[in-house]
Structure formats: structure tokens, C-alpha cells
Simulated assay, not measured.
Amino acid sequence: MDVIQMVWNEGRGTLWSRAVWWLMLSILTAVLTAVAYAAGAFAGWGGMDIGETCGDSYDDAFRAKHLNDPLFPLHNWCNADHDLVPSWVNPTVAGLASLCAVCLVMTMVLGVARGIHKKKQRELKV
């Protein structure tokens, strides 16, 4: 049991202080962000015409007004009350993108700190 505790403490103490770990987390969150964005971007593209997908709730005039909406937040409107993009997509994309940015900042901070530490170590050896 002491060996497991020792390995756990060592891993926990050094793992979060490595820039590579944060870089891997940022790559993972970037991929998950892209997957969530794709899920929203292709919502309602079930191979049918958008009018058939929406059914009776399709409003051509409302949809025409919103064809040039920005790329975020995602919407695929049938009418003013019915959006084909699931409600979880936009908050998930925003949250994962923010988490990715935090992981990238941590990667840079730890990378710079490691570089400074190695430079000081080289100066002490000379």
C-alpha cells in the first residue's frame, strides 16, 4: 500500500507541473471543441430538405432573414421558436474553447518557467 501511495504522490506532484501534460490537454479539448461544433453545424442535415426536417414549423421568410448569421453561436432555425441545433452545443463549444485557452496558457507559462530554470542551472554549473 505504501508503494501505491508513493507512486500516486509522485505522479500527482509532478504531472501537473509539466508543460507537455497541459499541451496534451489543450489538444484534447481542441478536438472535443471541433466535434461539438460539428455536431451543431450539421444539426438538421439528416439527408432531407430543411422544410421536410422542420415539418409544419418551417418559416421560409424567417429562415431567409437568418441565412447570414455569424458562425457562433450556432443556429439552424426552422422558425422563431424552433432551432435544430441542440441546446447543449453552444455552451459546450464555449466552455471547451475556454478550457483549451487555459491549457495553452499553462503550457506557455510552464514552458517558460522550465526554460528559465534550465538557464539558471547551466549558469550555476559554469
Rank of each mutant, 00 (worst) to 15 (best):
D2W: 00
V3C: 03
I4C: 05
Q5M: 09
M6G: 05
N9W: 07
N9L: 08
G13W: 00
G13C: 01
T14H: 05
W22M: 10
M24I: 05
S26H: 02
I27E: 00
L28G: 11
T29D: 03
A34K: 08
V35L: 07
F42R: 10
F42H: 05
A43I: 05
G44V: 04
G44C: 02
G46N: 15
M48G: 06
G51H: 07
G51R: 06
E52D: 15
T53S: 10
T53I: 13
C54Q: 12
C54P: 11
D56T: 07
S57N: 07
D59C: 07
D59F: 07
D60G: 01
A61Y: 08
F62H: 10
L67K: 11
L71Q: 03
F72C: 07
P73G: 01
L74P: 00
H75C: 00
H75A: 02
D81P: 01
V85W: 04
P86F: 05
L96I: 09
L99K: 02
L99T: 07
C103Q: 11
V112A: 11
V112Y: 08
G115K: 14
H117D: 15
H117A: 15
K119T: 11
Q121I: 13
R122G: 07
E123Y: 12
E123T: 12
E123D: 13
